[in-house]
Design a protein around this nucleic acid. Structure first.
Length: 522
RNA sequence: GCCGACGUAGCUCAGGGGUAGAGUACUUCCUUGGUAAGGAAGGGGUCACGGGUUCAAAUCCCGUCGUUGGCUCCA
């Protein structure tokens, strides 16, 4: 797609003399191009003009010419052209590896390779524009980012655009409103979802499903308050790490104490662990809670249910002996996979999120603990044959993670389930158990949430089944729910969600069969 | 938080300096044995909020709030 860059460049230069160009890489779907329009106004409506110009230029079938060039020459060329962005890019390039591509009368810095000529480009669509800082740095100039896509055939473009339309119809924000699942209120506050009766029913079905799965896996439910003393988070390290960027403490009127809305459940669970002495024979202890937490997300980041400021995690913390870590971790992987399978999520990726070796100051804890934790995650994932990608620098500040990512209708990737090995919190909270040697030992914690948060999970679930919750037969066995988007277009047997009920295993299986049939017939 | 766009009836949106419109939904009535049926009438909006310009502002300007596309961030 880099082949389009000269086309856009030439089109923009023709329509907006004096524009300057930043980077223009290919992305998963198409490409983008950062452009500095200077003082010239440019809005979405202008995209069409640019698009037409590009098509016009493409027809000229101009050939691309490659030319190796010295760094010095390149610098002087762009200096003359007064192009600060290309000069900035050149600084990072090694002399001898620099190539220019010439197309028509346009010369550009480009790695290549290119197709022979522009005649191969048949279908171009510029999709939208957005602001983006030069090199993602907010102290640098803001450029206009133009997103677009091209295909060799017009038909493929049409198919892609149709797909985009379909994706929009699945948007959980739209469906959530139409189906009366949830809403937001300015008065309550941004990013704080209000669950309507039908949405709440859906949530409760999911909770019930998860509780049953967890019961079978040896978890115990606990319940903790929505706030905790500031000291609790100083101990956990959360305050130091996120205190300034969190909801600020709640002050008591008389004693002058400070409490924080809990951003995580783990500190509370650590205190539960500590309420009595533990023996090695008691471990592992698995405490689960559908705990609602509050995080001050940046206003610009909020998005429907996928990014909110108050949400409920299907959280649990496993306290175990070091020799049990791998086994417990694998059990959790199995639970996550069971949940995904039951709900029909097949398109997910498992991401091993490790520490950034270049910047260890972002994290707490000793190297040895980190190495052990990272190793056990990698081993456990391998043992279960998970296809994984490894991301450096994506770990939580207290430990590495195994995250399960799925895509929403618009192709955005979201983290759902997460499993984290943690040697730090047991240390900070001085958690102990008495070993067979009658000595005190430190347990290891595993944080895990198969759904991640109910909010995000419901969002992804809505988009996954396009709001047709009768596909929820996949949930099977313990939960069966379904309802309709429009009572007039659905067979009568699809009962509204507010009439949903839990069916027994046997009847679920039977219903499921007939349901599948009717869905197929449709 | 930063930059851009947007904010008109429950929903989708048109309009645009002279005191509000459509479709759909809703209410009532009529018609109609059928899968988003037809007709009639009706209710519903200080055009997000607050300032300013103006004889006059929903319409122009500024600010705030919110939504949204990105950027940065994400325990």
């Amino acid at each position: 797609m880099a082949l389009l860059r000269p086309l856009i460049s030439r089109s923009l230069e023709a329509l907006y003399p004096g524009v300057k160009f930043g980077i223009g890489p290919n992305i998963e779907n198409g490409f983008y191009y950062d452009v500095d329009f200077g003082d010239q106004p440019f809005d979405g409506a202008a995209l069409e003009k640019v698009e037409q110009k590009m098509v016009e230029l493409a027809k000229a079938k101009n050939a691309y010419q490659r030319q190796a060039i010295s760094k010095e020459e390149a610098i002087s060329y762009f200096k003359e052209k007064n192009d600060p962005y290309k000069l900035d890019l050149l600084e990072g390039l090694e002399d001898g590896s620099i190539t220019f591509y010439t197309q028509g009368n346009f010369v550009d810095l480009c790695r290549g390779p290119h197709i022979p000529h522009t005649g191969f480009i048949k279908a171009i669509k510029l999709l939208n524009i957005a602001g983006a800082y030069w090199r993602g740095d907010e102290t640098r100039p803001m450029l206009t980012r133009i997103y677009g896509i091209s295909f060799p055939k017009a038909k493929e473009l049409q198919e892609y655009l149709t797909k985009l339309e379909e994706a929009k119809k699945r948007d959980h924000r739209k469906l959530g409103r139409e189906l009366e699942l949830f809403t937001f209120s300015e008065k309550v506050g941004m990013g704080l979802p209000l669950w309507l009766p039908k949405g709440t029913l859906l949530r409760e079905r999911l909770i019930q499903f998860m509780k049953r799965a967890q019961d079978k896996s040896g978890y115990q439910q606990v319940t903790t308050p929505h706030i905790g003393h500031k000291a609790l988070y100083e101990t956990s390290g959360h305050y130091e790490k996120y205190g300034k960027d969190s909801f600020q403490p709640i002050h008591t009127p008389n004693e002058g104490e400070e409490f924080l809305l809990k951003p995580m459940n783990c500190p509370h669970h650590c205190e539960i662990y500590k309420h009595k002495p533990r023996s090695y024979k008691d471990l592992p202890v698995r405490y689960a809670e559908f705990g609602t937490v509050y995080r001050y997300e940046q206003s610009g980041e909020l998005h429907g249910l996928t990014r909110v400021r108050g949400f409920t995690q299907d959280d649990a913390h496993i306290f175990c002996r070091p020799d049990q870590v791998k086994e417990e971790f694998i059990k959790v992987i199995d639970l996550v996979l069971y949940v995904f399978k039951a709900l029909g999520f097949e398109d997910y990726t498992a991401q091993i999120s490790l520490r950034d070796p270049e910047n260890k100051t972002k994290y707490i804890g000793e190297d040895e603990a980190w190495n052990k934790a990272e190793a056990s995650i990698i081993e456990a994932a391998a043992e279960r044959g998970l296809k994984t990608v490894t991301e450096l620098g994506e770990a939580a500040f207290y430990g590495p993670k195994l995250d399960f990512m799925v895509k929403d209708a618009l192709g955005r990737k979201w983290q759902l389930g997460t499993i984290q090995v943690d040697y730090q919190l047991p240390e900070r909270f001085k958690l102990e158990y008495v070993g067979a040697d009658n000595q005190k030992h430190r347990p290891v914690m595993i944080h895990r949430a198969p759904f991640g948060s109910l909010e995000r999970f419901v969002a992804v679930l809505i988009e996954h089944c396009a709001g047709n919750f009768h596909y929820g037969y996949l949930l099977s066995r313990c939960v069966f729910y379904r309802f309709q988007r429009n009572i007039r277009t659905m067979p009568k047997r699809y009962v509204p969600i507010w009439k949903m009920r839990i069916l027994s295993e046997r009847s679920t299986t039977e219903t499921r069969r007939s349901d599948v049939k009717s869905v197929m017939q449709k």
